[in-house]
Amino acid sequence: MNLPVRHRVATLSRRRFLAMAAALGAAPKASAANDFPSRAIRILVGFSAGSPSDLLARGVAEKMQNHLGQPVVVENKPGAGGIIAARSLLSAPADGYTLLVVSAAHAAAPVVTRNLGFDPVRDLAGITRIANVPSLLVVSPALGVKSLAELLGRMREAPGKLNFSSPGKGSANHFAGEYMLAEAGVEAIHIPYRGVPEAVSAVMAGDSQFSFVPIPNALPLIASGKLLALATSTGERSKVAPDLPTVAEAGISGYRFDPWFGLLASAGVPGEARATLIAAAVKSLSSPDLASRFGTAGAEISALPGRRFDEYIEKEIAKFRYIATRAKIEPT
Rank of each mutant, 00 (worst) to 15 (best):
A202C: 02
A109Y: 02
R8S: 11
L285W: 06
Q65D: 04
Y322K: 15
S171A: 01
R58K: 05
H7T: 15
A19C: 09
G271F: 11
D95P: 14
A23G: 13
A23R: 08
V101C: 06
P214E: 11
V102H: 06
I317F: 10
A80D: 14
E311P: 01
H67G: 04
N132F: 08
A158Y: 03
V240S: 05
A86M: 03
T325S: 12
K161V: 09
D207K: 07
M180T: 03
S13L: 15
L181V: 08
T276E: 15
V240D: 00
D243Q: 12
G195F: 01
A229Q: 05
S201P: 09
V5R: 09
G170Q: 01
R293H: 07
S201T: 12
V240P: 00
A131V: 11
K29N: 05
E300S: 01
K328A: 11
F164V: 11
L263Y: 02
A202Y: 00
E316T: 13
L55Y: 00
D258P: 09
Y312C: 04
A131T: 08
S31V: 10
V111G: 02
A280P: 13
P120N: 02
L304C: 06
H190E: 09
N2C: 02
V139M: 07
P167M: 00
G25K: 07
S224H: 12
S302D: 08
E272H: 10
L100F: 10
L68A: 02
L304D: 01
F261G: 06
V73Q: 09
G144D: 10
S53E: 01
A21W: 11
A125C: 03
K77V: 14
A223W: 14
G306R: 11
K315R: 15
Y255A: 03
H174K: 07
F257Y: 15
V101A: 07
L244C: 09
R42V: 05
K226Q: 15
M20R: 15
V5W: 06
V5G: 03
V240C: 04
L90R: 13
A267L: 13
S31R: 08
P71Q: 00
F118S: 00
R16G: 15
F294Y: 13
D95F: 13
W260K: 06
R274H: 15
F36P: 04
F257L: 12
A10T: 11
S238N: 05
A22T: 04
P220W: 14
P52I: 04
G160S: 06
L124R: 14
V139C: 10
F257E: 14
R326S: 12
L263D: 09
K161Y: 04
Q209K: 07
P4I: 08
Y97W: 03
L285E: 10
Q209C: 02
A241S: 08
E178P: 00
G69N: 02
T246Y: 00
